[in-house]
């Protein structure tokens, strides 16, 4: 989502960060999570799963804000997000 201007207290706000997990063999490639991710974190990958469907993959994993919408809209119980723990972030950063 684009803001007109940066909020004055943007520096003080802690934006939650999430990690997207995909259970590959459950996915049927409907594309709902890709279309409706508010941060456009996901995209179709070139990879196939066991049943021959194209999977989503996190192309911008750092943008995930852990809103759980992909988890809610997925009809296959194949994707979910979890809060990124600060320690993991420190390790990766």
């Amino acid at each position: 989502m684009a803001f007109w201007r940066i909020p004055l207290d943007a520096e003080q706000i802690d934006v939650t960060r999430g990690i997207v997990y995909i259970i590959e063999d459950r996915c049927k490639g409907c594309g709902y999570c890709i279309e409706y991710c508010p941060k456009q974190v996901l995209a179709f990958s070139k990879k196939f799963n066991k049943k021959g469907y194209h999977l989503p993959e996190a192309v911008k994993p750092d943008d995930c804000v852990n809103c759980h919408y992909c988890e809610n809209i997925c009809p296959e119980f194949a994707i979910y997000s979890a809060e990124a723990s600060p320690s993991a972030e420190a390790v990766s950063g």
Binding site: C30, C74, P75
Partner: peptide, 28 residues
């Protein structure tokens, strides 16, 4: 998956077609 404790996971993936909304309604 966070809902795995309420699902009979041995039956998943379910029979609903790709793009079918029943899965979403069920998960809600």
């Amino acid at each position: 998956h966070p809902l795995d404790d309420l699902l009979r996971t041995d039956r998943i993936p379910h029979i609903w077609c790709p793009g079918c909304g029943i899965g979403t309604a069920f998960s809600a």
